[in-house]
Design a binder for these strands. Structure first.
Lengths: 99, 99
DNA sequence: TTGTAATATGAATAAATGTTCATATAATAA
DNA sequence: TTATTATATGAACATTTATTCATATTACAA
């Protein structure tokens, strides 16, 4: 097994996990994982307020967990990369697996 | 891709990620991942105060991310299971990989 | 018993943060 | 232009939480 990573890496890991550790953001990640979606579609599917979803989308954007593009008046979000998928799968497996 | 999991599962995922998203706890997980260690060994390796390490170990215990046993006056901690290893690896890969 | 080493814990504080509310911006339609 | 829809944002509040300090507990040695 590896030694404790350098502080710089630990801090980045902490940041990523912090961004992932919120129920609203987790739901958003699942919503856009299925296929890319507009903000209003995400709002419906997640069941949170437009303001809250928009706020959390900015946090996901800053952390590079989602990509986005504008299309007319809409903004379409999608998952950033495959690591986010793997993260969701690992965490899901852990919490749904009976000991 | 899967739909958004039920709230109960999302909440458990949030809890697990919350526990993982702290630099002190991340360092502790790395320390005991190499091999099982006593609290005082963890304190030295992590470089945090005894009190802080002990507090964070209780949080890791409650979340079942570490196992422990008593040996004389010492308490020996180890990683709980393979999912924790995978979580560390996925997050490490994400933050160390150049885009 | 007394002393010491290892670990745990309660209180207190400072900082971070999720959510709501109100409002602003941008693009399109009429 | 005005109106409407989609999205973003700033302020404010309440709650959570990481850390420190002091102290308690536990096990063993002398």
């Amino acid at each position: 097994m590896n030694p404790i990573p350098a502080d710089e890496i630990i801090d980045k890991m902490e940041d990523l996990l912090n961004v992932a550790s919120d129920s609203t953001r987790l739901k958003i990640l699942y919503a856009v994982r299925e296929k890319e979606k507009s903000v209003s579609e995400i709002v419906k599917e997640v069941g949170a307020s437009q303001s809250l979803v928009s706020h959390q989308l900015q946090i996901l954007r800053k952390a590079d967990l989602v990509n986005y593009r504008k299309e007319g008046t809409s903004v379409i979000y999608s998952l950033a990369d495959e690591h986010v998928n793997m993260l969701l799968d690992v965490v899901y497996s852990h919490v749904t697996e009976a000991i």
